[in-house]
């Protein structure tokens, strides 16, 4: 009967389209961010005794830790940006009979993010 030709997906399918590559980048970078959360937990554990806290602080100043932080920061930023950019997809806002443009909704999220981050920064610096 039917002799339809099936084209299987190539093994490295995500390399074939920029949109898919971006998606995979998001997937893969999620892992390091998760691991970094482990680091934070280690920090909490270290805070229990003076000595281990000091050791932890020393490690934080090593170049390796610096590099790790820069990378994780970059990844975390990527996730923040893509998350907020996606927000209007999940939340449709109406004003009157018309949908508020997506850019505006996303813009609102970004603005809120900046404000909250600034607040935290003040808090930390203020300490």
């Amino acid at each position: 009967m039917s002799k339809d030709y099936i084209r299987p997906m190539p093994k490295r399918w995500w390399t074939t389209r920029p949109g898919w590559a971006k998606f995979m980048l998001r997937e893969w970078t999620a892992l390091p961010v998760a691991i970094y959360c482990g680091v934070l937990i280690a920090m909490a554990a270290a805070a229990r005794s003076e000595a281990s806290w000091q050791g932890f602080c020393d490690w934080l100043e090593t170049p390796l830790s610096m590099i790790l932080h820069v990378i994780v920061l970059a990844f975390a930023l990527l996730h923040t940006v893509t998350w907020f950019a996606a927000a209007p997809k999940a939340i449709r806002v109406f004003r009157g009979d018309e949908q508020v443009p997506e850019a505006l909704v996303a813009g609102g999220h970004f603005a809120a993010w900046v404000v909250v981050s600034a607040g935290f920064a003040l808090l930390v610096v203020g300490l």
Partner: peptide, 26 residues
């Protein structure tokens, strides 16, 4: 859906299927 988002980008009629799906998850 893992939210690749390409469906909405290629849609010629601005239907935004990705949006519909994410809203469905919410």
């Amino acid at each position: 859906c893992t939210f690749v988002g390409e469906c909405s980008r290629v849609c010629p009629k601005n239907v935004d299927p990705a949006g519909a799906i994410q809203a469905g998850k919410v």
